[in-house]
């Protein structure tokens, strides 16, 4: 299963990756991007199953990246993981059809549940 982790902070990417669950029969292939533009550029070739996307990033922020990823692939599964937990931000993100709006810092419980839900939906593992 391919996962794209998009965050300008290396430690934030590391915390997220460390929070991924062990799922029997599922192996994670992970790529990391440091801004939204990198994610948009890599998306068509990499074709990730799940994108974990931060919002406050240089070069291209997560809101713009989400909109562009949705243009490229309306069925993309994007989990926004952010420190910007304002209601107005959440509404904007959900209007752009993000699958989930998750609050930083990541925890094994929250990330695990989100990934397991996806695995169940896709009937893999």
């Amino acid at each position: 299963m391919k996962i794209l982790v998009v965050d300008d902070s290396a430690i934030a990417r590391k915390f997220l990756i460390k929070s991924l669950p062990n799922v029997e029969g599922v192996e994670f292939e992970i790529k990391e991007c440091i801004n939204g533009l990198e994610a948009v550029n890599i998306y068509p070739d990499y074709k990730p199953d799940i994108v974990f996307l931060d919002l406050t990033m240089p070069v291209m922020d997560g809101v713009e990246a989400l909109a562009k990823i949705k243009e490229l692939d309306p069925d993309s599964v994007v989990y926004v993981l952010t420190a910007d937990i304002q209601k107005s931000t959440q509404e904007k993100i959900m209007a752009l059809d993000a699958k989930k709006f998750l609050k930083k810092p990541p925890s094994k419980g929250i990330i695990g549940d989100a990934v397991l839900e996806f695995v169940k939906t896709m009937n893999i593992g």
Binding site: S9, T56, M57, P58, A83, I85, Q86, S88, T89, K104
Partner: peptide
Amino acid sequence: ELMNIAFGQAAAELAEVIDISVTLSF
């Protein structure tokens, strides 16, 4: 990153009180 998370929470609390949006930076 901790400052980012912490200020994000603080901004959300202010936005609740005075019904505004806060644009965050790095």
